[in-house]
Simulated scan of single mutants.
Amino acid sequence: MRRDVFQAIADPVRRDIIELLSKESLTINEVADKFEISRPAISKHLKILNECDIIAIDKKGRERYCKIQPQQLIPAFLWMEQYKVLWEGKLDSFERYLMELKSKKEDNE
């Protein structure tokens, strides 16, 4: 099954792996050590990230190193960017509403 970047970032564990690898390249075992789930589960997540070309896995001797390929995340960032203004407006509106409620509460006290 061919996956895309959106499927890859849909899972919180994969997002955590992406964040982890954005700081440094790690072996598969080092990645697994950072999580409290089974190594086979981590291997499955890494496989999906690799299939989506979000990470590359390079073999060096007996170790396999995972490194991020951030350029593959660009489609997701571009898609999310179009909604940034919408959500900022909604959050600003919600903040104003909360401030009004707080002000009314203080006036009634």
Results as ranks from 00 to 15, higher is better:
82 Q>Y: 00
102 K>G: 07
47 K>M: 06
45 H>F: 09
19 E>F: 11
35 F>K: 09
46 L>Y: 03
107 D>V: 09
25 S>Q: 14
89 G>Y: 00
24 E>G: 15
38 S>I: 03
4 D>T: 04
21 L>H: 05
90 K>A: 07
12 P>G: 07
84 K>C: 09
58 D>V: 10
55 I>C: 00
9 I>H: 04
23 K>D: 15
1 M>V: 11
35 F>W: 02
16 D>P: 04
99 M>C: 01
52 C>H: 04
94 F>C: 03
53 D>N: 08
93 S>F: 02
106 E>Y: 10
50 N>W: 06
79 W>F: 14
42 I>F: 05
93 S>V: 05
25 S>W: 05
38 S>R: 00
107 D>I: 04
39 R>V: 03
92 D>S: 01
1 M>R: 02
55 I>Q: 01
60 K>T: 10
31 V>E: 06
33 D>M: 09
85 V>W: 03
92 D>F: 00
47 K>V: 07
87 W>T: 08
73 L>M: 06
100 E>D: 03
74 I>A: 12
92 D>K: 04
75 P>E: 00
85 V>K: 04
3 R>Q: 06
36 E>H: 15
73 L>F: 04
59 K>C: 07
78 L>P: 08
76 A>N: 03
48 I>R: 01
7 Q>F: 00
66 C>K: 14
2 R>P: 14
73 L>K: 02
17 I>V: 11
9 I>A: 06
26 L>F: 03
5 V>A: 12
45 H>N: 11
14 R>K: 01
94 F>E: 06
28 I>G: 07
12 P>A: 08
46 L>H: 02
106 E>F: 08
11 D>M: 03
24 E>K: 15
79 W>H: 15
31 V>R: 02
5 V>D: 01
10 A>S: 11
5 V>K: 05
52 C>W: 01
94 F>H: 04
13 V>L: 07
67 K>V: 15
39 R>I: 04
70 P>M: 09
63 E>P: 08
22 S>C: 13
1 M>C: 07
15 R>L: 09
21 L>A: 13
109 E>F: 14
73 L>V: 06
105 K>A: 13
46 L>I: 07
9 I>G: 06
71 Q>I: 13
105 K>Y: 14
8 A>R: 00
37 I>D: 02
22 S>T: 15
85 V>R: 06
54 I>Q: 00
14 R>Y: 03
57 I>L: 08
18 I>R: 00
6 F>Y: 03
26 L>T: 06
62 R>A: 13
45 H>V: 08
50 N>R: 12
37 I>F: 08
80 M>F: 05
17 I>K: 00
35 F>E: 04
107 D>G: 06
94 F>N: 05
62 R>K: 14
27 T>S: 11
29 N>Q: 12
57 I>K: 10
44 K>W: 03
16 D>T: 09
10 A>T: 09
105 K>M: 12
18 I>E: 01
19 E>W: 06
53 D>R: 08
62 R>D: 14
107 D>W: 10
34 K>R: 15
27 T>H: 08
6 F>M: 14
107 D>K: 12
66 C>Q: 11
109 E>C: 11
70 P>S: 10
75 P>S: 09
38 S>G: 01
49 L>T: 02
28 I>L: 01
36 E>T: 15
